[in-house]
Structures are given as C-alpha cells and as structure tokens.
Design a protein around this nucleic acid. Structure first.
Lengths: 340, 340
DNA sequence: GTGAAAGCGCTAACAC
DNA sequence: GTGTTAGCGCTTTCAC
C-alpha cells in the first residue's frame, strides 16, 4: 500500500527521488516503450512508494482533452438508466474516459447549469438521455463544436440511439391477440412525443393486421402522475369491465393497474391479463411477474458511447445518424391464453 | 446567444479583442472589484460575443483545487439516493463546487477504480453513501489527506451522517401497538449491520415498553433478494395467520408483503396492517399507500455536504463526528386501529 | 485600476 | 534511452 494518496506529489518529486528526469517519469506511467526496463522498474518503485497519482488536470491542460464525457439524464432513479449508464461506462472506461453524470430531474435550469459546467470542464462530448426534449434544445447551441449523442429521443440534428417502439408495442399487442384477447385496453400518458406516438401506432397496427376493430373507449389517457396507472385502470374497470387485457405504456402504469385490479377483487391473469413496457426491476418482483417489453438498455448505452467516441476521435461532423435497437417481449405470469 | 460554446477560446483571445491584459479579463469573470465598471462592461461584451467559457482545468491547475467533490453511491436507482444527491448539490453548487457522481453497483472493483479516478481528478473531498462498508475500507487509505463524509453507515474513522434507526423502528411499532395490535411480525434481511441491529432494537424495545411479549416466530429473516418480502410474508401468513400487523424492514419488503397478502385473498388494512421504512416513491403509488418511516434524505445530503465543506475550508482534521437526523412516521392507508 | 511575469503539473517535440 | 525545454490557460503577486 502506498503511504498516501499522492495528493501534492508531482513528477518532480518522483524524478528527484528516482534520479531521473521528469520526462522519464512521465514515460513510465504512460507506458511509453521508450524506457529501459531497468529504469522503468526503478521509477515505478518510487511511484509506488510515494503513492504518486498523476494529475488529470495537468494532463488535460497540455493534451487539450479532458478525457471526460458529460452524461445528462432526466432522472437517475429511473431504474433502466442504470443499465444504460453501465453500458456507456463499459466502453468509455476501456478507452480511458470518465463520465461526468448529471441528473436534471426534468428541471431546465439545472440542465442549463450542468451544460455550463460541462463546457467549463471541457468535456470531449455529451450523451443525453432525457425523457423530454428540452436538454437537446439547449445543446443545439453547441452541437457544432462538441459531439452529442441522444438516447431515446428522435432528434434529427444530432446522433441518436433509439429502440423500435412501434415494433415493441406491436409485438406485445399481437401476443395478446394471438392469445385470444379481443378487448384490449391501452393505458397511456396524455402527451405528444415520438415514443408515445410510436407505441400507439404499434397498438393500432396489431389490431389492424389481425382484422380486429379498435374500440376508442379502450384507449385511456392521462397526464403524467405517479399514480396514473391506478386511476386509469380504475376508470377502465368501472366503465368497461368486459376488457380482458390491458397493455400499459410502461411498467409503472402496469403496477398501478395491478393495484386497481386487486382492489376490485379480480385476479391476474385469471380475470384480466396485463402487459407492461420497459422491464424495470419491479416487473419481476411484483407478483405475478409482469409480461413486458424489454429494452436493450445496456446495448443502448454501449452503442451511444461507441458512436460518440467515433465522433470524438475522427473529428467527424458529417450527417447525424440514428441507430435503432430492437426490443424483446418477456413473457411472465401476468398474461394468459383465452380459451373461448 | 453566444456565437459558440467557447471551446478553444482563451483569455488571450478575449484580451486582444478587448484591448486589455489577460489579468483584466480574469478579473472580470472572477467578479473582482478591482476593475472599473467601464472596463468591465467592455470586456464582458467581448466575452459574450465570443462565447468565452473559462477553462476549469486551467483554473484548477493554478488554484490547486478542483472545486469538485466525489460522490460514491452503491446504487443510484435506489429511489431515495436522488433526494440525498439533491441535498448535496444544493449546498455544493451555491459554493461553486461540482459533483463527480459514481455508481459502484455494489462492485468493489468499480469502487476502487472510481476512487482512483477521483484521486486523479484531485477532488477536494469525498462523500460516500454506500449500503455496504467496503468503499469505506478503501477510503481509509486516503482519509488522512482528503476529507471524507459517510452517509448512513456508522464508521468511527470518518465523519458520518446517520438517521435514528432505533427510534424510527420504535415509533413505527409503538404506533401499531397503540393501535391495538399485539401480534406484530418483523420482516428483515438476514445480515449483521448497524441499521438492521438498530431497527431490531426499536422493534423489541417498543414491545418491552408496553409490556408485550415478543414472539420470536414473528421475526422472519431472509438473505437479500429482490423478492424477499414476498417470500417472508408468504411463509408468515401460512405459519402464523393470527398475526394482525407486519413491520417491514423497508418499503421494498412491504411491497413484496402486499403481493403475498393479496394472493392469499386478504385485504390491507382490513385483515392485516403493514408498515414499511424509507418512504420510497412507490410507497405512495401502491394502493393502499404504505404507512412508513420517512427519512430526511434531502437533509442528510445537505448535512453531509456542509460537513465536508467545513472540513475542506478549515483544513480541519480533528476528531470525526457523527450527526444523527430524526425520522418521521408517515401514516397512510395500510394500517388500521384494531377494536377488540 | 491595470499590466507584466512567474508558475501550477504535466506532455511532447527536440537534442544528445 | 534519457534529458531539456517550451508551452497548455489560467491566477496571482508585484510594479506602475
């Protein structure tokens, strides 16, 4: 173990003690091949003894690269963000980059503040994974100078990594239809963004392809609130008890629906089937487990980081591209086949 | 709007264009009073026009302070971490500090890696909010050089910010007893740490103080798994259906218990009352809302940050101190009064 | 009130 | 293979 954490110790201290020049010290901890193994060993020993840790600040100043990327998310507690962050870091760390992570909590002011911090810190690029679009608006002012990759929000002006939302919803609803369900509700937030639009398209197209008419009354919308799923399902169960399946826009809504169903004294999936979206951890904890559309969050992170790194390295500012990643239906206990 | 984000523009560029020296430019964006308002206005205009953003890298190098603190958490998706992080940032930002946030996901290797990154980045201090103790072990090697504050894990060698776990559990169980409950189960993880020990103490002392004997069979233990609450409650309901109330070690366990109770066809709180701990968001989403012990997460963050800042500023390395923050029982629909 | 100059800890030519 | 040296973009004395 080193005697200390190297705070305050510089290459000069190491050089002096090892009787070499600072260049040699620099070469050693940069793994330059231009050092004899004998010198390297000698210097490394002194580095370890003194607990020397090179200052990334000084390195950044001369190399004109902070080796840091900024990551903006709108809500770090959102369970699937963690996997995405993992994916991002897995590729970034192997390239020696670190991540400056900022949680805006859907707050514009914080967002602006963080972006300014990133500029000051001279991040080499920015990845933004924000449910709403506002952060991206703020970024447009700098997108010509700094590579930017957006995850899960379609935006033509920067590189994007998205999932196939329409197909995911299609697969979920198609699964219900093929299981014999005909009266399938859709519980969704009342907003206008590409994700909602695409999942709605999938819901409609699945009906269309199977020749099943859509009953507009089965589409329940509500502005976002943490309890929205509960209220929407409650309303649905009262007004349309004939419904045999619910497709929820996401797992949080599905969980709210569970509560409304349980309180009505109904059983899942015996009386009603439920399908969610996202596959958050709670989807497998709750009982029965939620049949849901899993998104490749880790892969999304990896893809975004690779895209960004390519832009950083190649200084490539050509036309922004969008990469679409596929989803997968995970079947658990919340759905059953309807035998007529 | 600035023409660009200032990447690549230095104080020399600004100085030249404004016809002043670089010192003056520096004084302007540092709000030094030693500039005439006329000069200030002139320089500020150029700064805005060019979109100059000072490099925190260069500033850190000369000022020998990164104005950054490292924050280590074991799982950012843990819902209450977000509030704590908010609290931390609220005090840090007002002092011009930024936060380097690292999610170790309970992985030692990542932890060590992040600590090394923090050392390289020359953070001015570290706050660690990690369920397990390992991170703190890693930090002991550097605690003499860098201020460290730990949140929610008792550790004598560094400053700590904790909550009154025993009192929180006491208040919860006392509330149940005062509501007429006599057969109260405790569902808890099977580990040996101070938080678990303290809540157990609270559970026992509440019984003791009211002269109610504790039935050891009502204390159900299980190693951590995401579904532990469900399994423990299931076991309890089968072996001891006479129980009228459950005190869960945390809200996740309480939610698992809800599932087991619902599947048994029982109603909450009619057939059985449930009390949780933490007051995570889901505690108010789920139905009925969970009566639970709320922790002052935001305040914990603020307190930790203030403690750290004090250490950083005063270069104060005196005896580590521990600050205990109180909890509060939040009564919702999951509990009822038992009329004999 | 303003400017000149030294130096923070490193990297990267360039010289030997 | 190794050392010397000139900066990187700022802050901070110290003159004026």
């Amino acid at each position: 173990m080193a005697q200390n954490s190297g705070q305050g110790i510089t290459i000069y201290d190491v050089a002096k003690k090892a009787n070499v020049s600072i260049s040699t010290v620099s070469r050693v901890f940069n793994n330059s091949p231009l050092v004899s193994s004998k010198t390297r060993k000698k210097v490394q020993k002194v580095i370890d003894e003194m607990g020397f840790v090179p200052s990334s600040i000084a390195r950044s100043l001369v190399s004109a690269s902070s080796k840091t990327i900024g990551l903006i998310v709108s809500d770090i507690t959102n369970p699937f963000f963690a996997d995405t962050i993992d994916g991002i870091e897995s590729v970034l760390h192997s390239e020696g980059f670190s991540v400056f992570l900022c949680d805006t909590r859907y707050n514009r002011e914080r967002e602006a503040n963080y972006i300014n911090q990133m500029l000051e810190k001279r991040v080499d690029g920015i990845i933004i994974f924000s449910a709403d679009i506002s952060g991206i608006e703020l970024l447009t002012g700098i997108k010509n100078e700094l590579p930017i990759v957006s995850i899960q929000s379609a935006f033509k002006e920067v590189d994007c990594v998205n999932t196939t939302d329409e197909e995911g919803a299609y697969e979920a609803v198609d699964f219900l239809i093929k299981s014999g369900h005909r009266k399938i509700a859709f519980l969704v937030y009342d907003y206008d963004n590409s994700t909602i639009t695409n999942r709605m398209k999938g819901y409609l197209r699945a009906h269309d392809d199977e020749g099943i008419p859509v009953n507009d009354d089965y589409i329940i919308k509500m502005k976002f609130n943490p309890n929205a799923g509960y209220y929407m399902a409650k309303e649905l169960l009262e007004s349309h008890p004939e419904v045999t399946a619910i497709f929820a826009y996401n797992d949080m809504i599905a969980i709210g629906a569970y509560m409304a169903i349980y309180q009505k004294g109904l059983k899942i999936p015996d009386d009603i089937s439920v399908v969610g979206y996202d596959d958050i951890e709670m989807a497998s904890i709750i009982s029965p487990g939620i049949t849901t559309v899993s998104q490749p969050f880790y892969e999304m992170g990896r893809t975004a980081a690779e895209l960004l790194l390519k832009r950083i390295k190649e200084e490539d500012r050509s036309i922004p591209q969008t990469i679409l990643l596929p989803t997968r239906l995970t079947v658990r206990g919340s759905t059953r086949t309807l035998t007529p």
